[in-house]
Write a protein that binds this DNA or RNA. Structure first.
Lengths: 279, 279
DNA sequence: CTTGACTTTATCCTTGGTATAAACATCATA
DNA sequence: TATGATGTTTATACCAAGGATAAAGTCAAG
């Protein structure tokens, strides 16, 4: 092998890159072969050109486009390179952040699928101890209990727009619920104009609220229009057993199967009311 | 606004997505409008279809392709969804890992640019304290000091192939050097058949070696063919001052400017020999 | 000289959209 | 009912960063 006169195939194999990619880089003037045969068009590379290829691959791994890389080469200016690398560094950090949020969302949903498997689906109340959680709240104009599913969906759209508008990661949007405040609940008023999303522990903002851990009386269902009915069943149970409501009512959407229904959420939700057993 | 009969523009605005993207999803059978006017071709959406759009965006954020998402929808099987999500979870982790490595490489190189600014370029020896480092070693067939730049480049290609072959991140490939073992050095034998790369502290493998922190006598240069000369200058200095060599000789490539030279690495390297001042 | 391996160009395909133009539809107002 | 301003349709091309394929030409070894 003549290291000063490598064919495109040899150069490609040495650098673990495809011949097509080398031709592309030639066309884009990113890496021009050391010598091109005028008659046959054959490209011949010098092994020293591998250094440039290394640089291209390094810059590509940092997320630069080929156009930016060409700029780095043509500007001939190490200061510009440093500037671009600093920009890439921030881009990498943003991307890692985005992926971490996405990862958390996927994990949360996978956990919810597991919950779905074991939670009672017969509409009977049960107890659950639930740990500390953090939620991001958003207040709407109307009472959810006056809305049909389209109205509910519309309110979610307004929340989504709010998130985009305020640069809040959309990944949170996949684990949603609604609140009835304790004061309304105690008056038997099924009134809720607040929707919430669970957020990471480390996320703080004025609209993030901490939900204390505790014992919850819960009920699950997949019937959107039965929420009032299920809520009343819980409240009746609470009255009959003389439990004391010690916090807000949460209706958490555990799972959503828009895949398997046309036009409508097929959701499975868990209503949870924190209670104390009075001594 | 009729929530049961949204035009494509209304649907797009509600969901913060472009009309083109909605048309694309229609063409791909990812999200078909609830009703399409036969005469005009106008698409009309039901707001409940937003749920499906949410699902698409969520799955997209987890890294699925549109084709995979379509499969999720058409399979109608929550178990398959969980399987795919678990696959995505691993993909996300791999990508975060890759980005972290890339980030470290960029940081390392930016630091090296800073070093380049301040290091003496006049070929004079100087002392420097260098902290603990980890290197990944690779042994070649020949002695670097018998090679010209093409031969050196060829050995780097073999290293690169080794990395690819053994699934070692290529991001390490951007901070490279060679070793002369202490025993050879003490016999004035400029012999090196080991090339190394600096690796992260937490990376362990049989080929990873720890370099102790300590005081180094160093010399910098950008002349590939002057390494022997520079090495000898250091060795002479050490003899004259009666220093004691207490470890291996490292020749670290601080910077590489393949951008700014044709066919040849324009490299800036720092030779470092760990020494003790004899009392 | 032949044969097989290699290389050339040209062209199309991929993904997840964006952009544009020309034609047509809808809607509010006059 | 007319009109102008939007809104929507299709078709087509474009982007990055290559991958796939085909038909034709080239190289090197026996």
């Amino acid at each position: 092998m003549d290291l000063q006169r490598l064919t495109i195939g040899q150069m490609a194999r040495l650098n673990h890159i495809s011949e097509q990619t080398l031709r592309l880089y030639d066309r884009n003037h990113l890496l021009t072969p050391a010598y091109t045969d005028e008659m046959t068009g054959y490209r011949y590379y010098h092994i020293g050109q591998s250094a440039r290829l290394d640089m291209i691959q390094y810059l590509k791994a940092s997320g630069m486009t080929l156009k930016q890389i060409k700029e780095v080469f043509s500007s001939d200016n190490p200061v510009k390179l440093q500037k671009l690398l600093n920009i890439q560094l921030r881009a990498i950090d943003r991307e890692i952040g985005r992926l971490s949020k996405a990862r958390a969302a996927v994990t949360r949903n996978l956990e919810n699928y597991q919950k779905y498997e074991v939670l009672p689906k017969n509409g009977n109340p049960f107890f659950e101890f639930i740990g500390k959680r953090q939620i991001y709240r958003y207040t709407c104009d109307e009472n959810f209990f006056d809305q049909d599913d389209a109205g509910y969906e519309y309110m979610l759209r307004k929340l989504k727009q709010h998130l985009v508008h305020n640069d809040i990661p959309l990944s949170y949007f996949s684990n949603i619920g609604t609140i009835i405040r304790k004061s309304n609940l105690e008056n038997n008023a099924l009134f809720s104009n607040e929707v919430f999303m669970f957020v990471d522990d480390n996320d703080v903002s004025p609209d993030v609220e901490t939900i204390a851990s505790g014992m919850y009386l819960c009920i699950c269902s997949d019937d959107f229009y039965a929420e009032s009915e299920n809520a009343n069943r819980l409240l009746t149970e609470i009255r009959q057993r003389s439990y004391r409501i010690i916090g807000d009512y949460l209706c958490e959407v555990i799972m959503d199967f828009p895949a398997f229904e046309f036009n409508k959420r097929k959701m499975f939700y868990k209503i949870q009311i924190p209670v104390a057993m009075i001594s």
